[in-house]
Computed example of a mutant assay.
Amino acid sequence: MRSQQPTPELIRAAVTATVDRSGRTRLRRAGRPGFGEHPDCALGRMQWARTAVRRAYAAA
């Protein structure tokens, strides 16, 4: 979550846990994720998440 400012290590652990739990093939086929009660915020959240993951793996 953007307001929590997770560390690169925490982001990588979350990605690994999600892939382990869901599998790579299933993640690719997941399609559009649900955005809860605030779909109007989805674009900003996804942009933040992609940037955070990109930076977390660049720091590895």
Rank of each mutant, 00 (worst) to 15 (best):
L43C: 03
E37M: 08
R2V: 10
A58T: 05
A30Q: 03
R29L: 10
A60T: 13
L43H: 08
V53M: 07
S3C: 07
P8E: 08
A52M: 12
M46V: 12
Q47M: 04
G31M: 08
A42H: 08
W48H: 12
T25E: 13
R26V: 02
S3P: 03
L43A: 11
I11M: 08
E9T: 11
G31S: 05
L43D: 07
F35L: 06
E37F: 08
P39K: 12
P39V: 11
A52H: 04
D20Y: 01
L27S: 02
F35Y: 15
D20C: 02
R54K: 15
M1W: 08
L10W: 02
G34E: 15
Q47K: 07
V53T: 06
A60M: 11
V15K: 01
A17N: 09
T16M: 08
Q4M: 13
A56W: 06
P6G: 07
R28C: 01
A17I: 04
I11P: 00
E9Q: 15
S3A: 15
R12N: 04
A13L: 09
R50I: 06
A30D: 00
Y57E: 07
T16Q: 14
A17H: 05
R28G: 00
T18W: 02
G23V: 07
P8Y: 10
A56G: 03
S22I: 01
R28K: 12
E9C: 01
T16D: 13
I11H: 03
D20L: 09
S22Y: 01
A14N: 04
V19Y: 02
A58H: 04
G34N: 13
G44E: 14
R55T: 13
R45A: 15
R2A: 14
R29M: 06
R32A: 10
A56P: 01
G34T: 14
R2W: 02
A17T: 06
G36H: 08
D20E: 14
T25R: 13
A58I: 03
A60G: 05
I11K: 03
A14H: 01
P33Y: 07
G31V: 10
T7V: 10
L10Q: 13
L27R: 05
G34M: 11
R12L: 07
A42K: 09
R50D: 03
I11S: 02
L43E: 09
R32S: 06
G23P: 03
A58M: 07
C41N: 09
R29A: 05
P39R: 12
T7L: 14
R28P: 00
R54V: 12
A49P: 00
L10Y: 01
R2H: 09
P39Y: 11
M46S: 03
S22G: 00
A58N: 04
V19I: 15
A52L: 09
G44R: 14
T16K: 15
A14Y: 00
R12W: 06
T16G: 02
D20Q: 14
R54N: 14
S3N: 13
A49R: 08
A59M: 10
R50P: 00
R45D: 14
R26Y: 02
G44S: 14
R45M: 13
M46A: 06
R24W: 10
A52I: 12
T25I: 12
G36D: 05
R26S: 07
